[in-house]
Design a protein around this nucleic acid. Structure first.
Length: 465
RNA sequence: GGCGGGUUGGCGGAGAGGUUACGCAGCGGAUUGCAAAUCCGUGUAGACCGGUUCGAUUCCGGUACCCGCCUCCA
């Protein structure tokens, strides 16, 4: 059995991964709030934990891993979006979930075993809140139910902070009815304009954190193996989840290994709407970037380091994947074992850059079969991969396709004459114009190829008709 | 203010206390009418200052700079 090591945020150390039950390895990852298209940052945990999911399935068996990732479909951001647009909340969340599936499918992410929606687990949340009140960890005041952080001495363990330090930071919500400024909401009242559910504390809706505690408990049990998400969730979201779950079920231990991926940047800067470098996965796909390229770029940086998205990395990935694909097309190859080095690298705290290096070595050795099969562990299917140039070409209209075909024939003719006469003036003129239009002209002894590049501009071909 | 991370060659980005990371770009060569593509070869590192060591880019301490979280955020 391969030994997997994972960096556990709880201990700040790389630890040997030992599942509670090797026949049912359980992982929970925090999913999106569904009010808008997934941006590039949303994609990172999806891809990181998709690789972990694949690795766990590889090591423990496909049927031995349960992976749950939630949809937060009750949230004030969604309410705000509904109020802005006048649309129904359910309509917005349904649409956004469908988009999310489309976009993440395009990145090659496997669907998790469970994709629970918060609104389907309100009863479980209410039950957990009642349990917390009964055990003296939560209190009702002014129509709210709040978690009492002072009742849980270990609060702050995950994020390495103390309640007193955080209060010194003094960036906590002002709410006079809180016993302690750090207390957080489990349940809050809804007026008639807001979505709400009947509860022992009146009509209301859950606070943000309780859903993950309730759903992980329902689907994976009171204790399970891995809990993951973005680093920004470490505090307060995960800290609060731990407080809720461990106080409701003190002997269970909740999640044992906590994994956090670092943030995404764009061209060296934090992605933000004000900087104008904010974009969604759909934007990139629409620009013709293959899902595999987005995935490759993401995985070329280790998950615990900030990942900087740059155009040059995307181009590089596109080129490398194209080369790998050419090799497996030429050589074919039978089913092979996944390369042990790739497994070893991924088992070492998901060292995806190392795994990519190992794949590159397979390419250099011309080991097409191993390359193809080992790519699957990273979620890349080289057989179905289409480079950006091919995707862009597919989208071109028939008239342009015909024009390119005609031009190709013409280049062949002109070249034939030029070679016969040893006069290349006409040929060079034609080639220059094609190059100016963004077309790469490749000539071998046997054949001519016209490859439209990213700067391809069909309007510049008009003169050549 | 609190907590955490980073600083590697032109760019991206790893592992390893002493032996080529890898990719892209560059350079030289093969090939080509010229190119492109491809193939072969190749130079350039480890923020700064100390310490441990026979030996550190790799371990420890400090300095500088950068970044993230602490507020909805993956």
């Amino acid at each position: 059995m391969v030994t997997i090591r994972l960096h556990n945020t709880l201990t700040r150390k790389k630890e040997v991964f030992e599942p509670l039950d090797a026949s049912d390895v359980r992982m929970y990852v925090c999913g999106p709030t569904v009010y808008d298209r997934a941006h590039l940052g949303n994609a990172r945990p999806v891809l990181v934990f998709d690789v972990l999911f694949r690795l766990l399935r590889h090591v423990y068996g496909e049927g031995a891993v349960t992976y749950a990732r939630n949809f937060t479909d009750v949230d004030d951001k969604i309410n705000a979006r509904a109020a802005e647009t006048g649309r129904e909340i359910g309509e917005i969340t349904e649409e956004t979930i469908a988009w999310y599936h489309q976009d993440m499918d395009a990145l090659g992410a496997l669907r998790p075993t469970h994709e629970p929606r918060a609104t389907a687990y309100i009863a479980q949340m209410i039950a957990m809140i009642e349990r917390l009140i009964a055990r003296g960890h939560a209190y009702e005041v002014a129509g709210h139910v709040l978690f009492d952080v002072r009742s849980y001495p270990a609060y702050g363990r995950l994020s390495g902070r103390s309640v007193d330090d955080m209060i010194a930071g003094a960036r906590v919500e002002v709410a006079p009815f809180k016993r302690d400024p750090m207390d957080f909401v489990l349940w809050k009242p809804s007026d008639a304009s807001l979505p709400g559910w009947e509860s022992p504390w009146g009509r209301g809706r859950p606070g943000w954190h309780i859903e993950c505690s309730a759903m992980s408990h329902e689907l994976l049990g009171a204790s399970f193996d891995i809990h993951g998400g973005g680093l920004d969730l470490q505090f307060p979201h995960h800290e609060n989840e731990i407080a809720q779950s461990c106080c409701a079920f003190p002997d269970a231990g909740f999640a044992r290994y906590w994994l956090h991926n670092e943030m995404v940047q764009v061209e060296g800067k934090k992605m933000s709407k004000s900087l104008g470098n904010f974009f969604t996965v759909r934007d990139l796909l629409d620009q013709g970037w293959p899902g595999e390229v987005i995935r490759f770029v993401m995985l070329s940086t280790h998950y615990r380091k900030p990942m900087d998205w740059t155009e040059i990395k995307a181009q590089d990935a596109d080129t490398r994947l194209s080369k790998w694909q050419e090799l497996i097309r030429e050589c074919g190859g039978e089913e092979m074992e996944t390369d042990p080095q790739v497994v070893a690298d991924l088992s070492d705290d998901l060292n995806t850059p190392g795994a990519i290096k190992a794949l590159q070595d397979l390419y250099s050795k011309k080991d097409a079969a191993s390359l193809r099969n080992s790519c699957h562990l990273l979620g890349i299917d080289l057989l179905s991969f289409k480079p950006r140039s091919a995707l862009l070409q597919e989208r071109r209209s028939d008239s342009i396709a015909t024009l390119l075909k005609d031009l190709k024939r013409r280049v062949s003719e002109v070249r034939g004459e030029a070679l016969a006469k040893k006069d290349f003036a006409e040929m060079d003129k034609l080639k220059t114009r094609l190059t100016d239009a963004g077309i790469e002209v490749r000539m071998s002894k046997a054949d001519v190829q016209l490859v439209p590049g990213p700067n391809f501009d069909p309007t510049k071909l008009e003169a050549l008709k």
